[in-house]
Design a protein around this nucleic acid. Sequence first.
DNA 1: AAGGCCATGTAAGTAGTTACATGATTGA
DNA 2: TCAATCATGTAACTACTTACATGGCCTT
Lengths: 198, 198
Amino acid sequence: MSLPHAILTALLERPSSGLELTRRFDRSIGFFWSATHQQIYRELGRLEQSGLIQAVPGPPARGQRKEYEVLPAGRAALTEWVAEPQDPKPIRDPLLLRLRAAAVVGLQGLDAELRRHLALHQRQLAEYREIEQRDFPAAAAAAGASAAAGAGAGAGAGAGAGTSAESRLQHLVLQAGIQLETFWVEWLGQAIAGVVPE
Amino acid sequence: MSLPHAILTALLERPSSGLELTRRFDRSIGFFWSATHQQIYRELGRLEQSGLIQAVPGPPARGQRKEYEVLPAGRAALTEWVAEPQDPKPIRDPLLLRLRAAAVVGLQGLDAELRRHLALHQRQLAEYREIEQRDFPAAAAAAGASAAAGAGAGAGAGAGAGTSAESRLQHLVLQAGIQLETFWVEWLGQAIAGVVPE
DNA sequence: AAGGCCATGTAAGTAGTTACATGATTGA
DNA sequence: TCAATCATGTAACTACTTACATGGCCTT
């Protein structure tokens, strides 16, 4: 049940139409929760039905832009969901499965596929790093030096505390993306090196 | 379309009944492709229908053990699938989504959830490391020292090349698991440190 | 007025999840 | 013989995917 909450989050960050949401699910939100426009429109309908969001102005005509905003009940539902415990799902990765299958039936040119994936992950990593440079320039500079410090330094300034907490959380999410892509790039490097001398 | 191929791989490694498969999908195979017994039985039926596998001996009675083995057509289908290109799926992680939601509605005791996940991932990592010690003792010892070397050294010995290639691939998959869990443990550490001073 | 794009949808199919049902075997 | 457990399944539901449909707007 994550999609409705992803949409609520996106709409709280900025009220949007279905198409705008679709685009945002191709970029920022989509980096950790993807969705197609069909899913989004259907879910917008359900959320409106449930009274968690509402379409803003007036004419509900087909082919007409419809902008949605979150109602108090929607914010409450999201707040509740954030606290809910939910176990991490086990990994489910077709590429790892294919490697295991290759151990039985032989590499069938799988190394080319590994190289292709490596290129894709390198590109994604570069994109995340650009975003970090753009949106979190100060933190990005410090990131290389200290790993798990982060505590005392920046918290001192009283001004704009709310915004700084928000930005800190967003940066954490981006860092997860960067570290995950880094993992893939490194592992694929090992995998290619270990598989080529066949 | 990964589940049928996961089952074919498992059955090639060792012919099994539905329940045995279910158990293996809770352990080794399940580390990168999980499935419930309902999924497995349904898929076994489909695979048998398609002539890719067959039940071994005789009496197809309800409540009776049924052991399956892979037919040549099944091996061929798996071989073909290994070579098929397939793009990596974008990340889809509810925990990251909740962090992003928390940036908008506030942490609602989310730090406890982060600590809980950290413990779970630490346990999983320990389990993977045990498996590595048990199944790949030589390689595990070398792993700490050289990262992306792996090329020249071990490949020289001609004896048992088939088995060694198989084991090398299986080890690669396990290493992916280890490195992924390591990522989570490190990132959750950062996240908790960055979130606590709230 | 025609073609392209913006915007919102419907329909059908597949995969995965949750809850329940049924028969066989074994040990108390 | 009763309960527990092994083993195989059915049914209903939810989430996601793929393909297609419809209408409005803008440019030429």
